[in-house]
Structures are given as C-alpha cells and as structure tokens.
Amino acid sequence: MPLTNNTLNYTLHLADNALILGQRNGEWCAHGPILEQDIAITNITLDLIGQARNFYQNAAACLHESGDPTASEDSLAYLRTEREFKNLLICELPNGDWAQTILRQFFFSTFQLLLFEKMKHSNNEPLVAIAEKSIKETQYHVKWSSEWVIRLGDGTTESHSRITKAVDTLWMYTGEFFIPASYEMIDVASLKNEWMNKVKEVFDEATLTLPENVFMQTGGKNGAHTEHMGFILSELQYLQRVFPGAEW
C-alpha cells in the first residue's frame, strides 16, 4: 500500500490515544479501590497497550516502506516529543478519583467502539485487522465502564456527587472526538449522534444530566497538549532517554 502522510499520522493518532490512556490507567495498578477492580482496570490497560503496539507496529512498517529503516514500535512510543504526539486531550488528563477514571473510560471506549466498527469497513487492510481484534475488547470496556457510571450515578449521595463532578471536569474534552483533524481517514463527525445517544441512555439510567453549551477544548490531535502531557512522557520515556536502547 502506498504510504501517505495521512495514513501514518492517522495510525499514530490511534496508537497515541491507546498508549497515553493506557499509561494513565496503569497508574491505578495496585491502587484500585478493591482487588477485583484493580485487576479489572489493569486488564483494560493491557488491552489498550496491546492496541497501541499493533498501531505502532503498523506505523513502523509504513515508515520502513518509505525508507526509514530505524523506525520501530519502541522508537515511536519512546523517542517522539510532546508536540509529535497526536492523542486526544481526554486521554492525558489526570486520573482524578475512581469516578473520573470510570467516566473517562466510558466516554473514550464508547467513542472507540463506534470508530472501530466504522474502521472495520474501511479499505486500509492493517487498520481493518486491528479494528476487528480490538472491537471484542472494547465492547467489554464499554459494558464495564457504563455499568460503573450507572452504579455511581444511581448509588449513594457521595458517589452521585463524585460522578457529577467528573462530568463537569471531563465534558469539555468530549467535543474533540468529533472534530476531524486533516489526516483523519474516518469521518468522526458522523459518529457524534450515536455517541450522544449511548451516553444519554446511560446517563438517564444513572440519573445524570447531560451538560449543555460547554466550550470544547481541542488541540491534542495536532500536538497541542495540556500541561499534563510532559509529565506523562517524562515518566514513560525516562528509561529509553537515559539508557538509549536498553532492553529487558
């Protein structure tokens, strides 16, 4: 397949989303509210890191074809700078409390599922294959996170106030899902209605209200990140930066 810059950038965008959210969720490892949920969130983390690897390997293969033999999944994850990362802002936000982490996962996984279902019917073979594999994982992420949103929203006064606060914090980062970047090969704007319907359905059951007229943050897709991004990368990339080429 001929390499276009769009294919490469789009693959990196998908990889960065999965890697950065995986890195964030990984911070819960050994800190989950109970053992069972600690394992649940880290399982999801591993699914995301697995997806990131698939996308990075595909991106590296694209780069090989275009004459860059040094590119690898590791070099793409560990040796790019903040402005080169194209992940959505919502992926890099701090975890906050359990409610905020759950809600972010619900927003993101619901979007990712719609995206992968569309990608499955695209004409880019490697992306079709990755989408097919990832859909099964993502269906579970949506199920797990939506049940938690309902549980917290329709739970105690404390859990309701926490998830409400999470909605206030995160909503302004949901608009970016549907504002296409120049390199995007899938029409993300067309996913918005279905995403809103799913979120509304879960919010209704969780006795939560959809915010209205919120200014939406953007920039991540084109490398303009929040102040949190540098800290994630310094932790993620430290080892390869200090000991280049270090291996297990």
Binding site: I34, L35, E36, Q37, I39, A40, N43, K143, W144, E147, R151
Partner: peptide
C-alpha cells in the same frame, strides 16, 4: 471467591480475576 456488589458485577469480577 471474590467480593462484588451484585451478581452481574460478580460475574465481571470473576471474568477479570479468574479467566484472564
């Protein structure tokens, strides 16, 4: 065994803890 708030959560927890 494991802890869970209800049956569906128990099945999901079991899926995550015992079938990974």
């Amino acid at each position: 065994s494991l802890h869970a708030a209800d049956a569906s959560m128990a099945i999901e927890n079991a899926r995550d803890v015992y079938t990974r």
